[in-house]
Design a binder for these strands. Structure first.
Lengths: 108, 108
DNA sequence: TTCCATACATACAAAAAGGTGTGTACTATA
DNA sequence: TATAGTACACACCTTTTTGTATGTATGGAA
């Protein structure tokens, strides 16, 4: 039996679990514009490796933040798309943008 | 000379650099309620280690998101407090809370 | 026949993040 | 005199995350 501290399941931790790390929010942000194929995502995030992209997409799909649709063609064609839950991250990204802007302002 | 991809300095990455990781947002959240001493922070985040707390606070201070005020007493008394830039993270935390709530809802 | 494109998988290595345990300075208090 | 409290520092270790380099299946184009 594990000892779970009182704050182990607060909304901040939940969100960190779902969206933490270097890439997930960047991927989600790209997908807001509409469904994308793997290679399209790769081009829109130039410094991500293929492995990371595949791995993070899998996690996003497992968390029900995105869906994967394979067209069963050859060469393979697969499209990734946000779910409703995934789209709910938009205000969060907006808040991040605003935070970054206010941080970089010269004011106090 | 380093090669910097086109998207290296977007607001998402800036925010991730400043607030990423397991602890910074939790610490900031505690400090919204008002200035706190190290031990008070430790009690309000039961599962953080002293090293992590000190280390993360130092980073937050270096980033101008918080300030450190030593009272020069013995035993030491030090207070940590948010700066204006630090307070600007509040909407972000609010957005995280809302995201977590919507994620955990049973709807689609 | 060789090569290309796509969307992966897998093994391995490097780097970053996080955790544990101990020590220190100083004073007050028991 | 021994102990406690505070806010650290430092060494060391483990885990997690990220990166690199290859390999695979398939069919069509050259």
């Amino acid at each position: 039996m594990e000892k779970i501290p009182i704050s182990a399941r607060c909304p901040i931790r939940t969100t960190l679990d779902l969206l933490g790390g270097k890439w997930k929010l960047l991927i989600l942000f790209q997908l807001f514009k509409g469904p994308l194929r793997l290679n399209e995502l790769r081009k829109s995030i130039p410094d991500i490796s293929e492995k990371m992209l595949v791995q993070e997409l899998k996690i996003l799909v497992d968390s029900n933040l995105a869906t994967r649709k394979s067209f069963g063609e050859v060469p393979p064609r697969v499209e990734y798309k946000l779910t409703e839950k995934g789209k709910a991250a938009m205000p969060l990204i907006e808040a991040m943008r605003e935070f970054a802007i206010s941080y970089e302002a010269k004011e106090p």
